[in-house]
Design a protein around this nucleic acid. Structure first.
Ligand SMILES: [Mn+2]
Ligand SMILES: [Mn+2]
Ligand SMILES: [Zn+2]
Ligand SMILES: [Zn+2]
Lengths: 139, 139
DNA sequence: TACAACTTTGTAATGATTACAATAACAATA
DNA sequence: TATTGTTATTGTAATCATTACAAAGTTGTA
């Protein structure tokens, strides 16, 4: 399915900027922040406003096209993969990886009385690259 | 173990305010924000500063006495229970519940190459009280 | 063209958190 | 006790991600 259809399927009018923003998300799969999208796309579209990126993500979020990740204290990250999966974020370099988490909601005791809308699973620590850096600097 | 010993065990000098703040955490177990602690304790201690609550939580965090919960977009919540467990937050009333999550880190595929320091598991949706409210208002 | 609906933009406001410097409390020592 | 250094607490100002809002631009239709 192409990008325009993906937008239309969620009842979102496929404007040029929405297209470019979703295209960025699907091409990079890098869990970007608003600023990452803004910095990259404004090279090509110098008139782009940060507010538009905020607006667009909020629209995508409301329409269920992306999920918002609260894995970072500072900035929100966004993910066009809305399937249930976890994330690892390196405390040192900030990069984010996907984790295959097979969580059966119905199996979690104590979750039965709630109407669950979203599930987030986050791990934080050091990636293998940064483990090496850390060891190096601690000599 | 009493509160003073709990602080000392983590290498934290048991000042009056640190004592009161930890006491609040252990008594309430309500995953408070900085403001919740400030509002409650400043009744009894009118000279208390919000900055002190921020400072104290950052110290507790650094010493591993509490964990910080990123379950809320707006404010950070803190938890004196540092055992591995998940949380449910109601989108409507904002209350937070503990979830018994039995996650064996070593069992999560794709986490092996990382040095994991923290794990967070969040579910969001509606609590049973607010499910009723919602149904009522949608009539 | 004219009009309405929607999209995009820029600026100002909001609000949680941190930075910083001044003061107060505490601890060790002479 | 007086002195001195260290740590804790406080208040204010700065930071910065996000939102509010209103103006300007775009699109589609009659
Ligand atoms: Mn992902
Ligand atoms: Mn808890
Ligand atoms: Zn790293
Ligand atoms: Zn509720």
């Amino acid at each position: 399915m192409n990008i325009i259809e993906t937008l239309q399927q969620r009842d979102i009018k496929p404007s040029y900027l929405r297209l470019k923003i979703l295209e960025y998300m699907l091409a990079r799969k890098n869990h970007p922040t608003v600023d990452m999208v803004y910095e990259e796309l404004s090279k090509e579209i110098p008139t782009l406003s940060r507010t538009t990126v905020y607006n667009t993500f909020n629209l995508f979020l409301q329409k269920g096209l992306v999920q918002k990740l609260g894995i970072d204290d500072v900035e929100a990250h966004y993910d066009a993969d809305i399937s249930l999966h976890g994330h690892f974020r390196c405390d040192h370099c900030g990069k984010i990886w996907d984790l295959p988490v097979k969580t059966d909601v119905s199996q979690i005791e104590g979750l039965k009385k709630f109407e669950v809308r979203t599930i987030e699973y986050y791990a934080k620590g050091l990636c293998d690259q940064c483990q090496k850096c850390q060891r190096h600097s601690n000599k």
